[in-house]
Structures are given as structure tokens and as C-alpha cells.
């Protein structure tokens, strides 16, 4: 069970003066149950890439294998694939159209050929997973707030019961609280249902916190595909691509430059806190103060870096 891309290339407007490469020879494999962060500058080909994964776009050359089968082969059931590889577009709330939230969420399962009753069950389950309160189910989707609309729209994809969920910048335009809640929901889904997640994002902080592996696209090329820590080691290269490592990585880097022996590839505040604390203890722990205040100091450090992070 996996998604495998082989030498995927996509050329826009091939054969005209406006011809341009959106993707160039991209090959990778994503295992079942992985949480992948997809990062890249605007126009790096992220959206194009994810649209190939569920067969919405056809590659100019190369192909995609889902569970070992070539999805662009003749006779492959693309509609079924779209139920298995759920794709949530950017600003998904703009695709809502039904009279009630519930009816809208049922649209996907009904397209899959499920009965009215099954579709309703799926829809309710998906809405619950998406974290939308039941009092909104019977309301018009256009009456909801931005964050609620987005949850309803995501539920619309979840209701199809995908094994792989691709989210294109799901937190764009949400406030910090909405963003954190939504990412928690996604992470929860990953843990509870073992859904493979591909999260497209600009924010290194978000990706570092949740992703098992990070995929970095640059001008249509797959630049890095590795664990967050290994990718963050290339923070100077990332900067050249118009990206950056998480703020905390920079802090760790500075600490290291100051001669303090910390791992500079750390990407989350929690990891940084552990690293600093373990260093603190290994160097003799509390010298002047007690053990408690030592922890305090570590926490203090962690929090001040959190402040720079935000």
C-alpha cells in the first residue's frame, strides 16, 4: 500500500511560447500511514504535484502508482481512486453548494454510489471527525464562519473514507487558534485512522511539528525528501529557495555558534527544550540552584524561543 511516483514530469502549454516545466522527473514513494509535509515556494509545483496523485491532472511523462497499480493506465477506475486518495484544495470552502452542511458532505459518498443511509452515516462520522458541532449540520453552509466552512468542506472529502488525505494549505487564511485546531484535527485523524497525510504548507513550523518526512519542491524539482531534522540541516539552501527552517532551528544554530554543543537541526520547540535540558543535566545539572529551578530555566528558554517562533 503506497503511492509511488516515477519520473513524473508535467509541462504547461507544451508546444507554445508559454511552455514551462511545472514538474521535472519527480520520483518518490510514500508508505502507508506516513505523515508527509510538502513544502515549496509559490509556483514550485506543489499544487500540480498533488493533482497528479489522484489523477486530476495527467503527466506529460512518467506516472503514478497507487498500491502498485499505474493510475494513468487504460481502464483504471479514477473515480474510485478519488475516493481513496482524498484531495482537499486550497480554500475548500468555496466548493460548498448544498442547502445544508450535511447534504453537502453527503455529496462525495453519494457520488461513490453509496445508499442514502450509508452516505448519511459517513457524513455524520466525517463531520464529527472534522470537529464541527452537530448544531451546524442542518444549517446552510453559507451561514457558517470561515473556519467552520472549512471544516465542513474538509468533512466533505473525509466522508469518502480516503486512505490518503492530501490537504493543500488547509490553514491559509485561518487565525492562529483555528490553525492549531485544524492541524490537531488532521494529526488526530492520522493517529486514529492511520490515514496517510500529505500536508502542503508554507509554514516550516507546522510541518516540523507533525510530519514524519518533508518533501521540498523547488522550481518543479524534488530537492529534498527526508526527515525534518535532516532537511533542516540544509537551512541555508532552503533560504535560497525562498523558504526557511523553523525559527527554533536558527536559535539552535546560534547557540552552536556560541560554542554550546546542541544539535542545530532541531525543528520543534519541544525537541529544543529536551536537548537543552539534557545538555544542562549532562554538564552537571544545577550548580548553584536546585533541581526545580533548573527545569524552570529550561522551560524559560523553551518559551522565549517560542516567542521568537511566533
Amino acid at each position: 500500500m503506497s503511492i509511488r511516483c516515477e519520473k513524473l514530469t508535467h509541462i504547461y502549454q507544451q508546444g507554445t511560447v508559454m511552455e514551462s516545466y511545472a514538474l521535472r522527473d519527480i520520483s518518490f514513494e510514500i508508505q502507508d500511514g506516513e505523515f508527509i509535509g510538502l513544502i515549496g515556494h509559490t509556483g514550485s509545483g506543489k499544487s500540480t504535484l498533488i493533482q497528479h496523485l489522484n489523477g486530476l491532472m495527467r503527466p506529460s511523462s512518467g506516472t503514478v502508482y497507487f498500491n502498485g497499480e499505474d493510475i494513468f493506465a487504460q481502464g483504471y477506475d479514477l473515480r474510485k481512486l478519488r475516493g481513496q486518495v482524498g484531495l482537499v484544495f486550497q480554500y475548500p470552502e468555496y466548493q460548498l453548494f448544498e442547502e445544508t452542511v450535511l447534504a453537502d458532505v453527503k455529496y462525495g459518498p453519494k457520488n461513490m454510489g453509496l445508499s442514502e443511509q450509508e452516505a448519511e452515516e459517513r457524513a455524520r462520522e466525517a463531520l464529527e471527525l472534522s470537529g464541527l458541532q452537530p448544531e451546524f449540520y442542518a444549517r446552510s453552509p453559507f451561514e457558517l464562519s470561515g473556519g467552520q466552512k472549512r471544516r465542513a468542506a474538509i468533512a466533505g472529502v473525509l466522508a469518502m473514507g480516503p486512505q490518503v488525505l492530501i490537504l493543500d494549505e488547509p490553514t491559509a487564511g485561518l487565525d492562529p487558534k483555528g490553525r492549531d485546531e485544524l492541524l490537531e484535527t488532521v494529526s488526530d485523524l492520522h493517529k486514529r485512522r492511520h490515514t496517510t497525510i500529505i500536508l502542503v504548507s508554507h509554514s516550516m513550523e507546522d510541518v516540523a511539528r507533525y510530519a514524519d518526512r518533508i518533501m521540498v519542491l523547488n522550481e518543479g524539482n524534488l530537492q529534498y525528501f527526508d526527515t525534518p531534522r535532516r532537511v533542516f540541516r540544509y537551512f541555508r539552501e532552503l533560504e535560497k529557495m525562498g523558504l526557511s527552517a523553523p525559527q527554533i532551528t536558527y536559535l539552535m544554530q546560534e547557540l552552536r555558534d556560541e560554542g554550546i554543543d546542541v544539535d542545530p537541526s532541531i525543528g520543534t520547540i519541544e525537541e529544543a527544550r529536551e536537548e537543552i535540558l539534557s545538555l544542562y543535566w549532562s554538564q552537571g545539572g544545577p550548580l548553584a540552584a536546585g533541581a526545580d529551578s533548573g527545569t524552570e530555566a529550561g522551560r524559560g528558554l523553551g518559551e522565549s524561543s517560542a516567542a521568537t517562533g511566533k
Partner: peptide, 13 residues
Amino acid sequence: DKIMKAQTARGAD
């Protein structure tokens, strides 16, 4: 095009 794709991703035909 965008909306069409989004609905196609939800199984629309």
C-alpha cells in the same frame, strides 16, 4: 476549472 477539479476530487462526474 478549479471548482470543477474540487468537485471531481469528490467523485463528481
